[in-house]
Amino acid sequence: MTRLHYLTTRDNARIAYRLDGAPELPLVVLSNSIGTDLHMWDGQIAALIEHFRVLRYDARGHGASSVPPGPYTLERLGEDVLELLDALQVRRAHFVGLSLGGIVGQWLAVNAAERIERLVLANTSAWFGPQDQWDARIADVLEADDMQGTTAMFLGNWFPASWLEPLRAEVEPFRATLLGSNRHGLAGSYAAVQETDLRRALSSIRVPTLVIAGQFDTVTAASHSELIAGAIAGARLLTLPAVHLSNVEFPREFDGAVLEFLMER
Rank of each mutant, 00 (worst) to 15 (best):
G180W: 05
A87M: 00
R76E: 06
S66C: 08
G78E: 01
Q133A: 15
G185S: 10
P69K: 08
G70A: 05
A191N: 10
P69S: 11
F154L: 12
R76V: 04
S66Q: 09
A191S: 15
F154H: 05
Q131P: 12
M153A: 13
D146I: 09
G105N: 10
L98I: 15
W134K: 12
L77C: 05
D132P: 02
T150V: 07
A122K: 04
A176P: 00
V120N: 03
F154G: 01
P166L: 02
G78T: 02
A126P: 08
V90C: 06
W158F: 11
G70K: 06
A87I: 00
L155A: 01
G149V: 04
L85Q: 00
G188E: 08
L119G: 08
S189V: 03
S162D: 12
A144S: 15
A113C: 09
L84A: 00
T150Q: 04
V81R: 01
L82Q: 00
E75A: 14
D135E: 15
R91C: 02
V104E: 03
L84G: 00
L119P: 08
E114C: 06
I116A: 04
V120S: 06
L100Y: 06
Q106C: 10
F174K: 04
T150G: 10
T73Y: 04
D80Y: 02
